[in-house]
Write a protein that binds this DNA or RNA. Structure first.
Lengths: 208, 208
DNA sequence: ACACATAAGAGAACGATGTTTACATTGAGC
DNA sequence: GCTCAATGTAAACATCGTTCTCTTATGTGT
């Protein structure tokens, strides 16, 4: 059913068909969001960049927000890959937890364009099950690691939620420059490692 | 220089002058952002709500983004007030730290409209010094408390940054529903208190 | 080789939006 | 009562999101 099209540009000169407008639009959108922020992206300008009429993208996306949503999905999948890869590089459980967090931070630093679309574009994820699902699958990695570390489900949930929150907070605050004034010299994200490390070293044993 | 205008509605019937269009526009914008998300707010609809022509708001705001920026400043000030108040209610330093975090979470829960504009509208704070300054002053509260708790500036900075990140992450993730699947039953933010509490209980002594 | 169904763009049109400009109305102070 | 600044209206413009209808490659079966 789904027609998988290779992005091979046939050398037909000008080319009436674009070849792969879908990814071209995504790339243009990412670029615009990166350059001018989430509210600086328009379908018109993106299609201009792709060298195509404004109506053409509507063959590939239902509307503007769906375009953003598909990009968000791509970002989520990419994030999941990188987190999984980082986790699989170490064997000890707490190490896995640490590396998952660092992978998250690395992602937000290396792909600020995706990150902005995923979390800074005011996207209503509840309207896009695929976006919800892929993001959730990222969280599940942390969730399951927490359950291997902690003895009770309550403690595991708490560790997962607060770990995710800490890392996500660090990522968003650095992404939008809120932390720029506080940790000026450290642009290198490895400086954030002790923060995550220390968080992991919490006793996390008693009380409810 | 600045004309401080009281929002007193003269009973002049229909009223050519609005009375206080500035705050009326802010309120309308907050309502729209709350109802339909950051991208669901338009100057046109907001001025319609305020019962005024689309051009009228431009007497009070340079452009759409400036309007958002002013609302963000209001939100920052409100946040600072509530954090300060919460801090002053307890005497012990670590308690102050805890209460500042809880005040932050309370703010995000009680004023989701302001919070969305402040952090979820893709606002470029670097273009609005006042927004940057007021947000920074909120962070300074945590910053100074950290320096009272920790012995070295490095540890203090780390505690401040990670504390701010943890709380901000919890706030944003719950605000946009990302955590809804993980902590379903707990809508009451007091459930988040142990997370912050536990974070505070970290030894935070050795290593760099 | 050919006709044809179809995917994918073109082009024009619509209403809504952000913003500017020129003009009108109001109230306050002299 | 006149003037002036503040604040509104009305109309205009470019841009945007979106939807039509029409056109053109493309590849498939015969």
């Amino acid at each position: 059913m789904v027609l998988r099209k290779e992005a091979i540009k046939k050398k037909t000169g000008g080319a009436y068909r674009h070849g792969d407008l879908k990814t071209a639009m995504k790339r243009a959108a990412l670029r615009l969001v990166q350059e001018k922020g989430p509210r600086g992206f328009s379908i018109n300008e993106a299609s201009r960049l792709a060298g195509v009429t404004v109506a053409a993208p509507y063959r590939h996306f239902a509307d503007k927000e769906s375009l953003l949503a598909e990009i968000a999905v791509d970002g989520n999948v990419l994030l999941l890959q990188q987190v999984n890869e980082a986790v699989s590089r170490v064997s000890e459980v707490k190490q896995k937890m640490l590396e998952s967090g660092m992978a998250y931070l690395r992602f937000s630093a290396n792909h600020p364009d995706y990150f902005k679309v995923m979390f800074g574009a005011g996207l209503d994820r509840s309207k896009y099950p695929e976006a919800e699902r892929t993001l959730r699958s990222c969280f599940d990695v942390i969730w399951e690691l927490s359950h291997l570390i902690e003895s009770t489900p309550e403690l595991a949930a708490q560790r997962a939620v607060s770990g995710w929150a800490l890392v996500h907070g660090l990522a968003t605050l650095t992404a939008d420059g809120s932390l720029a004034t506080a940790i000026k010299p450290q642009t290198h994200l490895e400086h954030l490692r002790p923060l995550v490390q220390r968080f992991l070293d919490q006793p996390y044993s008693t009380t409810t």
